[in-house]
Amino acid sequence: MALLEVKGLTKRFGGLTAVKRLDFHLDEGEILGMIGPNGAGKTTVFNLITGIYPPDGGEIRLNGQSLLGLRPHVITELGIARTFQNIRLFANITALENVMAGQHCRTRAGVLGAIFRLRSQRLEEQRILREAERCLRFLGLYEKRHELAKNLPYGDQRRLEIARALATGPQLLILDEPTAGMSEKESSELMDIISQVRDSGVTILLIEHDMKVVMGISDRIIALDNGEKIAEGRPAEVQRNQRVIEAYLGKEEV
């Protein structure tokens, strides 16, 4: 059974159909790249999967369980974590505190635990800290853990978002243009990290605008244009696909 299954997914904004009867699936342990020109509907698909928008039609299933109508935090708890295209860190707190947010849905301490510092609460706090530090190390940010998120350089902020998402303990990690605005060197380093994340057992869905980045790392690619799937397959196949080339470069005038 596929880890994630999307069938007939449709989303309209007023008169505009942003996503049209989209079908795709993700197998466990793979990296699926989603490409398409600006406005193709990639981010909308992400927002539908993570429950930020309700779809107008279709079905989304994780491990066979429907995600329709679930609130975003429940979907995260079920095992889907994401990053944002325009970075959405908690800017005014430290990198470590940012990543600790990810552990919230895996822990339970409440008001009384906090006030009376019960043993279970103290142990849980230690666990949160250890897990957050592990994720920071994984992304190479451990040394900068006490810096405020907003004071980190741009590339570090992108990586911090991934660390925060990983701290939720996801089965599926959704990355929305993780290399946007990065130098070539930074983005190739990030691709190495993403491969490592996959090797640690997390399935990855990756939006990329930049074809070069996504071709090297993805097992499979789907291409969107105007909210519709125009191609699907191995990177080399999709790259040669006539409709994909047209979508990116425009149709040749005859």
Binding site: A81, R82, I93
Partner: peptide, 10 residues
């Protein structure tokens, strides 16, 4: 700080 991001973090 950011309600949407908080919700997305579970």
């Amino acid at each position: 700080e950011d309600e949407l991001a908080a919700e997305a973090m579970g």
